[in-house]
Design a protein around this nucleic acid. Structure first.
Ligand SMILES: [Mn+2]
Ligand SMILES: [Mn+2]
Ligand SMILES: [Zn+2]
Ligand SMILES: [Zn+2]
Lengths: 148, 148
DNA sequence: GGCCTTAATGCAACAGAGTTGCGTGCAAGC
DNA sequence: GCTTGCACGCAACTCTGTTGCATTAAGGCC
């Protein structure tokens, strides 16, 4: 939400060649400023409170950002999409792994971890992408062990 | 749905020590007879049409089967759970990978494929499970290439 | 077999995430 | 500035799954 994120967002939206709207800039800035993947609800909270952006618009903008590879979305077990601004990898396919905390639900990208691509499939099957998700406890949710 | 599946289902339910109900047997038999993971809707269709089992009961039975490790469930991108009878691996943790067809949505277990467990996480993070999903096209959905 | 206890079922109402339809507004091209 | 059509806002909707509660039936006991 600092000017920096807003400016980066604006230039990224401009680069697509499509319409540069306040809503697209703002939602992308929110994603850029987050260090973890945000649910629609979290984005809406911030976008609606500060700028009155409608929840349906948030859904549509998130989808638009994903389609234009300015963001990517992650399916969770809680049946909620989480969105992350695309990293500096630019538009390249979303090939990295993810971590999801079993306690607080936070999701982060493990940008350096890639899934093996050479997986044996039944005959006739064709692989297009491999998704790897590590589940566990994030640093905040790991119980303290200092005095145990 | 053949007697064999029904009988196997009945003995598996009995083995848990909990109540052996028609609904539990029938739903498990349906899962056992399927070669791919079934959505709640698919199970309900078969269970409701043939035996009039209520949809809420189907939800509860599927959850119960999962809790007792007679089935396991897979989260999909379409916000729909898919259920599979647990393989002969018995109650052992659901450690294998899955394949999901991007075209028809079918999900199958890749029983022999396991995800690497030694993944580097940010400091303080703890891993509890690793999920691996291959996406692509199943044999039925791969476009025919014979005459190309 | 019949009785009792309690877990499981059936039904209706509810909840949350996401979608659709349509009238209005505003970005961008001229 | 004026026009055009994409995007927005709002309301109504769909779909998957959940909860509350009265009723049924599994299984232990005699
Ligand atoms: Mn990611
Ligand atoms: Mn499986
Ligand atoms: Zn956490
Ligand atoms: Zn397929």
């Amino acid at each position: 939400m600092t000017p920096t994120f807003h400016d980066r967002a604006e230039s990224l939206v401009q680069r697509t060649g499509a319409r540069v709207t306040r809503q697209r800039i703002e939602v992308l800035a929110i994603l850029l400023s987050a260090r973890r993947a945000l649910t629609h609800h979290e984005v809406e909270d911030r976008a609606n409170r500060s700028l009155g952006i409608d929840r349906v618009t948030v859904y549509r903008v998130l989808e638009w950002l994903t389609a234009h590879e300015l963001a990517h979305k992650i399916a969770g077990e809680d049946r909620v999409w989480r969105f992350n601004a695309a990293g500096d990898e630019g538009g390249r396919s979303h090939a990295h792994a993810h971590f999801k905390c079993n306690d607080c639900g936070d999701v982060i990208c493990l940008d350096e971890v890639r899934a093996a691509r050479d997986i044996r499939l039944p005959s006739g099957y064709r692989s297009q992408a491999v998704e790897l998700t590590v589940k566990g406890l994030c640093a905040e949710c790991v119980p303290a062990r200092k005095h145990s």
